[in-house]
Design a protein around this nucleic acid. Sequence first.
DNA 1: ATGTCC
Length: 498
Amino acid sequence: MDTTHEMLTVTGQAKATLPVGDDLSPITVIGTEPIRQSFGGETLKQAINSRRAPGVSRVVLNPDAHVGYGAPVGCVMVSPTHVYPGPVGVDIKCSMSLLQTDLPAEALHDAAERRKVIKAITKRVPTGAGRGQRHAPKSRRVDGRLGFQVATEGASKAVLKKLGIPKSWAEACEDAFHLGPDGTSDSLAARLQWLGRERDKLDRIESKYRQLGSYGGGNHFGEAEVVRLAGGERERAVAETFGLKDGCVAFLSHCGSRGFGHDLAMTQFRSLKSVFQSRGLAFPAGDPQLVYAHADSAEGQQYLCDMAMGANFATVNHLLINALVLEAFREVFPGIRGELVYFISHNIARQEPIDGAVQWVHRKGATRALPAGHPQLAGTRFESTGHPILLPGNPRDGSSVMVADAGAEASAFSVNHGAGRRMSRTRAKKQLVQSEIDRGLADHDIISNCRTYPRDEAPDAYKDFNEVLKSVRQAGLASEVARLQARFVIKDGAPADD
DNA sequence: ATGTCC
């Protein structure tokens, strides 16, 4: 145990605080004892740096926390005045989505049937860096004009119609579209036109539009699941509102804004860094990755435009993937129905009422968790339940659908975004044995599109998901509504021969 | 996360 761990003051079974000095309120730490012990010293240092950074009013560290870009992945950083691009992250609006079908789980009993669906999906939705639109039919080809519309309008009626996405799915989004800081999409259009002219600022931007409807690589994935509803009466009622169907197949996706958002984020890091340097400003804790802007400054407004456009791209990317996945399922199982349960981000800054004031809530690898009655749910179909929280665990131990409890206020209305890394990619590749990973998944009758499962993405490269979920429950943040059991996984990796 | 080192 190092010095920083000794500074953790335990305030509940799964809650602690970490003091940061200078009369600042301490960091809220969520996690059972074993989870708190799993935090590395560098992770805690990044959390302290974030809390001490200018304009920051509050920081929450979640059970899935690990080292990130400036701030830990798995943290919430709140500011009434400042925006922080690093703590939004390089994959702007990286998100989870869940598609519920009415296909009974038994239909996927035979591996041969699952192989057919895998093939139908990978034919439509590519994986891997730089990949996109390999076999998109003309009707769904994203040219410069449609790409521009996607970036500036998000999931508008016109965009959904052009891409053949059901218009009702916009209502199952945390945010279906993002406007510029002036409250219009005109500011986004102006900004995008300017970026398009500055070739050194955003190179070959139109080539990135064609990645719409693709997964990418790393920890992104698509996964067919069997839905198992939790036992409680209240949980059953909530599951019904969410549209979850016990014993039926659902499809969970994890991806973000691909090369488009990446380029916008990297361009912002570079330009804000040079603003700091030219003005002789010090980086918070000396870390350029914690570069920031006042939300109402010219730089802040430009960042918010770029974040909004990355977010719009990520939103339509997810919705298109879900439409293509449903189409793939229907190729194998004609006539089945599918509805989007929810689409929710874990890399975004949003304005929300926190501690009595509207503030910028930066969720970096953290999921919004608004309980029943929260003002931002007024008028939505989740007003009286809270919205669905989609938490990927790992294919072996499952994933979870949760709903926020009133206690979520303690964590700035946020929970974790998954299990969180236990070991670095390098360590995982060195330490984990390929044959054991593949056998472990085979033992659970889980197949994938990969010949061998990526070692750095193996279940054991991540923290114990059940301990993470226990942390969330014991801290009083959220309750489990359903568990998702993986039947097959789509990931970027060596393709299986078939 | 990212045409994973222009």
